[in-house]
Design a protein around this nucleic acid. Structure first.
Length: 445
DNA sequence: ATTAGGG
DNA sequence: CCCTAAT
């Protein structure tokens, strides 16, 4: 025996509550019209007004079973109540992209509500019909079960909602109070459940989605990350194969600086990944350029070795990159990350200015650490290959002296004003280190 | 829109 | 790398 409350909206402010007692074994339907007419339906009005659903015959279906467990199928609650059921989660249409506004009626509930209509006279037949329809809709809303109607299972499935609030609510409903509360609670619950989409989550979600699409053959334009991840494959079969086999080092600098490298290949890169959409400089991706061999492999292997998804897209910093960075810093100063990025890293669309800064931070740390404990460092280099050439480290230290990165605690132990370290850039390229262009010189002690 | 700082 | 607050 199952019973079900149907709150139907008769007029503007008139609501009618009906209880269906359904005896599933005998196929009987007993209808009981509670004193309906609710007056203070303002909230409901608003609720519908906001959704453009304010048509004069909308019904809310509330169902209960006799065991005392209660579940409510009210607008919006549908989503909440069945999202709890693991088997039906994937089917729920309302979960997909709907707004997380507190008073948005979910798609599913919309379906449930909108085309459920009947005349309030001639109850017997139409009621049954309507009820069946409602059940069917419920099923559609949750899981495509087999189509037997009026099985007590159908109702039971909604009962895994153990929320005591709901039972209270429904009880009060039976006593003839308003069903507004249902809506309120419904929206409340929904609000609770839909909390915090989180940038990260969204990104991952869209990522999965696009991957899925790709798998289906639809090549969704862009999506830098996945594109990068699949970079090897894609390039291997051809399309963006502008990659000239470079000498893998040093080239990028002059070319970039002289601007000869600025080309206009309309890359299909989405704005989602690292690259900022702000493109003041025609950014071409020869990015694999000198990384095709090492960095790409690095990242790939890394991803394979450890598939822990922290650090989503991680690209190893190559030596040339680091050198570029150091050069840039020494030229433009610390803190001009955007400039450096624009001028020296136009080639690599990943590497946001923040990345540069982070890398610089790490470099500083490294250099300091290098100074502090040599032996341990060497130890570590034993098991982790980090070929940071001394010359580079020295340059880092110099730069650290000139424009110390604010708030770097280990930095204090730099060479302590050793003039010999300054001009002795063995690699030449003393660059403009001497001229600290208008960089606030803070002593980092 | 960028940067600094922390995780 | 990522996220957030501050500018």
């Amino acid at each position: 025996m199952v019973s079900c409350i149907l709150a139907s909206r008769m007029q503007e402010n008139a609501w009618e509550l009906k209880i269906f007692h359904v005896n599933s074994s005998m196929g009987l339907i007993h209808i009981e019209v509670l004193d309906g007419l609710l007056d203070e339906v303002d909230e409901v009005e608003d609720l519908h007004a906001t959704d453009g659903l304010a048509s004069p015959c909308e019904d809310f279906l509330l169902d209960i079973d006799f065991a005392g467990k209660v579940s409510v199928l009210a607008p919006g609650l549908c989503q909440g109540s069945h999202s709890r059921n693991p088997s039906s989660e994937s089917q729920s249409p309302g979960l997909s992209g709907s707004s997380n506004s507190a008073i948005g009626i979910s798609d599913s509930s919309t379906v449930t509500v909108q085309d459920f209509e009947y005349k309030n006279d001639s109850l017997n037949k139409t009621e049954k019909h309507g009820l069946q329809a409602a059940v069917r809709r419920k099923k559609r809303c949750r899981t495509p079960l087999q189509g037997t109607c009026l099985d007590s299972q159908d109702f039971k499935e909604f009962d895994d909602d153990e929320n005591p609030l709901l039972s209270d609510l429904l009880l009060s409903n039976q006593k003839g109070k308003s069903s507004i509360e249902a809506c309120k609670v419904g929206s409340f619950l929904r609000e609770k459940r839909l909390r915090k989409p989180t940038q990260r989550y969204i990104e991952e979600f869209s990522n999965k989605k696009s991957k899925y699409l790709k798998g289906r053959g639809k090549f969704s334009s862009g999506d830098a990350v996945t594109a990068n991840d699949k970079g090897l494959k894609m390039r291997s079969h051809g399309d963006l194969h502008n990659v000239r086999p470079k000498t893998l080092s040093a080239v990028s600098e002059e070319e970039l600086l002289s601007g000869t490298k600025i080309q206009e290949v309309p890359l299909v890169r989405g704005k989602r990944g690292r690259p900022k959409k702000h493109v003041s400089v025609p950014q071409i991706e020869p990015d694999e350029e000198h990384f095709t061999s090492e960095s790409e492999d690095d990242s790939v292997t890394k991803r394979r070795c450890k598939s822990h998804d922290r650090r989503k897209h991680q690209r190893m910093w190559t030596l040339t990159e680091v050198m570029n960075l150091v050069d840039g810093i020494s030229e433009y100063g610390v803190g001009r990350w955007t400039d450096i990025k624009r001028l020296l890293f136009a080639a690599s669309a990943y590497r946001t200015p923040i990345d540069l800064r982070d890398k610089w931070r790490n470099l500083l740390r490294a250099s300091c650490a290098h100074k502090l404990k040599k032996k341990e460092m060497e130890e570590r280099q034993g098991h982790a290959v980090r070929p940071l050439p001394k010359s580079l480290l020295r340059r880092v230290r110099e730069l650290a002296k000139i424009h110390p990165y604010p708030r770097e605690r280990g930095v204090k132990s730099i060479g302590e004003d050793d003039p010999s370290t300054l001009p002795t850039s063995s690699k030449g390229a003393p660059l403009s280190v001497g001229r600290k262009n208008n960089v606030r010189r803070k002593n980092c002690t």
